[in-house]
């Protein structure tokens, strides 16, 4: 299972930002051909991304490219970008599993056969999209994550903004559940006010508690906070290591369910501990909680 915390949005028509993006500490660089590019510059952005992807090394960030929707310029985007083998394609405004199938068909045509299959991250940003999220999440093995486009979604259901964002609660719950059911991860919508560091901390904490694995960042300043909040803490890591150690000891003695610190350790607890260590390994958190 692919895991990542920070997904930094990078405007696709901006050479200076493209150059910098891999050094900003984000797990994923989301190179944007869609809403981050002016309508008159879509052609320029497509060619710029294509040529930049051919020659620049974006590691250690993974490269995700957000194409335009298939009913606008998405096909041209795929033709140009797929041969460059980005790690994943972000498909905006997804509402049905059929739309995913259409993308798969085009990608299969242009994908280099000697490279790993290109992955997908559909964006759910409408009421219909959310209504179909379970079938969307399950629709292709290429899908590694689903992400929530909160602002567009709220516009589509006609809600009013509240400080604690309760109007997003149902959508967030569904996203997390659908992702888990499909064996993939859910990525949360960004915080739009880039100067509100405190608001970001609160929102990201809530998001992590709800079960999201990561969050979209629309400004480099948000990356550090998001990485920190979506990483297991030092305490969690210590706990997980103890659980796993105790589990191994009990396996040797064949005891099944046991207790640690007066609390029962059964399968869900064990899975939780393993999940934490999985994140630790993937994020290179060799020292307790630090990256």
């Amino acid at each position: 299972m692919d895991v990542f915390r920070s997904c930094l949005a990078v405007p696709g028509n901006n050479p200076a930002m493209l150059l910098k993006s891999s050094s900003l500490g984000a797990d994923v660089s989301m190179l944007d051909l869609e809403d981050g590019v002016a309508p008159t510059e879509k052609d320029a952005a497509r060619l710029l991304l294509k040529h930049t992807l051919k020659t620049l090394d974006f590691s250690p960030s993974k490269v995700f490219v957000r194409i335009n929707s298939l009913d606008t310029l998405g096909k041209e985007d795929l033709k140009a970008i797929v041969p460059c083998s980005p790690y994943a394609i972000i498909i905006p405004k997804v509402e049905t599993a059929e739309q995913i199938a259409q993308v798969v068909e085009i990608v299969e045509r242009y994908e280099p056969k000697d490279k790993p299959q290109i992955r997908f991250m559909p964006v759910i940003e409408t009421a219909r999209g959310l209504a179909n999220v379970f079938s969307v999440a399950d629709s292709s093995k290429r899908i590694v994550a689903i992400s929530l486009g909160g602002e567009d979604f709220l516009a589509s259901i006609g809600s009013k903004r509240s400080r604690e964002r309760k109007e997003l609660f149902f959508a967030r719950s569904m996203m997390v559940t659908a992702a888990a059911a499909a064996g993939i991860i859910a990525i949360d919508t960004p915080v739009i006010d880039v100067d509100d560091q405190q608001g970001l901390v609160e929102d990201a904490t809530f998001s992590a508690e709800m079960g999201f694995t990561g969050k979209i960042c629309i400004n480099p300043r948000q990356v550090g906070t998001v990485n920190r909040i979506f990483s297991p803490s030092a305490t969690e890591i210590k706990w997980a290591k103890r659980i796993i150690k105790a589990m191994r000891e009990h396996e040797e003695n064949n005891s099944g369910v046991f207790s640690l610190d007066g609390k029962m350790v059964d399968l869900p607890i064990a899975l939780q501990a393993e999940k934490i260590m999985y994140l630790v390994r993937n994020y290179g958190l060799d020292r307790e909680g630090l990256s």
Partner: peptide, 26 residues
């Protein structure tokens, strides 16, 4: 600009000026 940017901008300008770009660069 790095060379990749130079190439991309040149191709974009050519296309906008009415030149039909070769398939493999699209």
């Amino acid at each position: 600009a790095l060379n990749c940017t130079v190439a991309a901008r040149t191709l974009t300008a050519l296309a906008r000026a009415g030149v039909a770009l070769k398939e493999e660069v699209l």
